[in-house]
Amino acid sequence: MKSLGHILAIIQKDLLTELRNKEIIMSMLVFSLIVVAVFNFTFDPGSEQMQKTAPAILWVAILFAGNLGLSRSLSREYENGRMQGLLLCPMDRSLIFVAKVIGNIFYMGIMQMVTVPVMIVLFGVTIGSFAGLLVLILFLGTLGFAAVGTLFSTISANTKSREIMLPILMFPVVVPIILAATKSTAGLMNGDPAGHIWAWMKILIAFDIIFTVACYLLYEHVLEE
């Protein structure tokens, strides 16, 4: 119960900070829209090819924008030695990981609430009655991404050029998650047989579990100084 209180305290503190300066959400939102717009230029308007690649573009946008937000979310914690302040608190240090992952999922969720509908309109994609399923896929993809991203942005926040280091570390490793998420989304948007969506969603869930557990277990090692 106490642990829950600590997690909540960290999340509330993070959200209050974000509410005041809006750095993370605004930069992610604008950047994801830019990615969507830029990719849009590479196709003939209204072509079928454009709709086919929409899921991939969506996840590339989430990946790039998420990278920005994750980097900021953790480097903020290292200003004024704040992470030391957290490490000094009498609690299990893996709670920091849990709180940070939840916070990062929240930021990315807000970004997706705007980016995904815009994308659906701009690319003329039909999702029919599967909106709930789409939300689930977005959540699953974001969960795995946020878990890996939280671990690696903690690492990159302590390197000399953190903005460069984070994508170099993170992108190759999250390939499986992004691939499974893209495939699930594509199945949904292109109206593939439902069996394929489920097959890919199961794979996505398996990857989420593997990566979240691994990152959770390793997180304490990157915190210690």
Partner: peptide, 16 residues
């Protein structure tokens, strides 16, 4: 729980 630590870094959050 038994130690208080203070360094030249304040550990404080600037937006709070």
């Amino acid at each position: 729980r038994c130690v208080g630590v203070m360094t030249h870094d304040s550990f404080l959050y600037a937006d709070l």
